[in-house]
């Protein structure tokens, strides 16, 4: 066993359908990763990630699809773009994270942070209805739907009194153009899911 432990694992001998999928769908060649770890070194949230960006890339090489689609890091990644800018191979990790998030939801995996997904969905439904986001109603709906009625109440009132949370916002006139985009999104989600 000891000798096995010290024998490096040859990742190029591991079959990974996910790696092929990422290469085909996103045009990203994971094979160029040299595991330098600069992505994880720069990541603002690496200290709370269950799998750091470097590990995410290696898990794709290993084909560990289930692990990737259920990991917590998916929902606390900030999309701050530091990892891709530091990667000597230019691997677009934020794009991979987007792809994995989309795939996880489409395939029905329960996100580890439902509130994060709920917030994204509420924001998108705001755009679907009005074409623009109005922050005050969005925050209120989010707090009601998560049952956190008193969350940020004092802060909300302070911001409201400063005129930072107007109750009305602009609206797109040609809403049919915006709605078309959402109709095809919903059609995509249904077809795949």
């Amino acid at each position: 066993m000891d000798t096995d432990f010290y024998t490096p694992m040859r990742l190029d001998e591991v079959e990974s359908p996910l790696q092929d999928e990422v290469e085909k769908a996103l045009g990203i060649d994971i094979e160029t990763c040299m595991e330098c770890g600069k992505c994880s070194g720069g990541c603002s949230n690496a200290h709370i990630f269950d799998f750091t960006p470097r590990k995410v890339v290696q898990l794709i090489r290993l084909g560990a699809e289930e692990t990737l689609l259920t990991m917590d890091a998916l929902w606390v990644c900030l999309s701050c773009q530091l990892c891709v800018d530091r990667c000597p191979s230019g691997i677009d990790i934020p794009r991979i994270m987007d792809y994995l998030r989309e795939k996880a939801l489409r395939e029905g995996y329960r996100p580890s942070r439902p509130a994060v997904v709920l917030f994204y969905e509420l924001m998108c439904s705001c755009v679907e209805r009005r074409g623009r986001v109005s922050e005050a109603p969005l925050m209120l709906r989010f707090n009601v739907l998560t049952g956190q009625y008193l969350k940020d109440l004092t802060l909300g009132i302070r911001m409201f009194l400063k005129g930072k949370l107007p109750l009305t916002a602009g609206k797109v006139k040609k809403m049919d153009e915006v709605r078309t985009l959402f109709v095809s999104w919903h059609r995509r989600s249904v077809k795949r899911g």
Binding site: S79, R101, E102, E121, C126, V127, R132, V172, F182
Partner: peptide, 15 residues
């Protein structure tokens, strides 16, 4: 219209 911000790119690339 809204660009969709983090919400849209986290949920659907085409959107």
């Amino acid at each position: 219209n809204c660009c969709g911000a983090t919400a849209a790119h986290s949920l659907d690339h085409e959107l």
